Amino acid sequence: MKRGRILSPGRSLASLGTIVILAGCAIKPVPDDVTGVSTYAIARQIRCETRAAARERVVTYIKNLAEGSQYIAGDPQAQQLLARYGDGGEDISTFRPSMFTGPLEVERRNYLTMIYTTAIA
Rank of each mutant, 00 (worst) to 15 (best):
M1T: 02
M1E: 00
M1W: 00
R3G: 00
G4K: 15
I6W: 00
I6R: 11
L7E: 10
G10K: 04
R11I: 05
R11E: 09
S15W: 00
L16K: 11
L16P: 00
L16S: 05
L16D: 05
G17Q: 05
G17W: 01
T18H: 06
I19L: 14
I21N: 06
L22V: 07
L22K: 11
A23V: 02
A26E: 00
A26Q: 03
I27Y: 13
P31R: 06
P31F: 04
P31T: 04
V34Y: 12
V34M: 09
S38E: 14
T39Y: 12
Y40A: 14
Y40H: 05
Y40W: 03
Y40T: 10
A41V: 10
I42Y: 10
A43N: 14
R44W: 01
R44G: 02
R44M: 02
I46K: 13
R47E: 15
R47W: 15
C48L: 10
C48E: 09
C48N: 09
E49Q: 07
T50S: 04
R51F: 02
R51L: 10
R51A: 09
A52I: 02
A52M: 05
A53M: 12
A54F: 05
A54Y: 04
R55W: 14
E56K: 14
R57E: 12
R57W: 13
V58T: 10
V59H: 10
V59L: 15
T60G: 04
T60R: 11
Y61I: 11
I62E: 12
K63P: 00
K63G: 00
N64A: 10
A66E: 03
E67D: 02
S69F: 11
Q70M: 14
Q70A: 12
Q70T: 08
Q70V: 08
I72R: 15
I72E: 13
I72H: 11
I72N: 10
G74T: 07
P76E: 05
P76A: 08
A78S: 11
Q79V: 01
Q80F: 09
Q80Y: 06
Q80G: 07
Q80P: 01
L81Q: 07
L82W: 09
A83S: 04
R84L: 09
S93E: 08
S93R: 10
T94K: 15
T94D: 05
F95E: 03
F95R: 15
R96K: 13
R96L: 08
P97L: 05
M99L: 09
M99N: 06
T101V: 08
T101M: 06
P103V: 03
L104M: 05
E105V: 01
E105F: 03
V106S: 11
E107L: 12
R109G: 07
M114R: 11
I115E: 11
I115H: 06
T117C: 04
T118M: 02
A119P: 06
I120P: 03
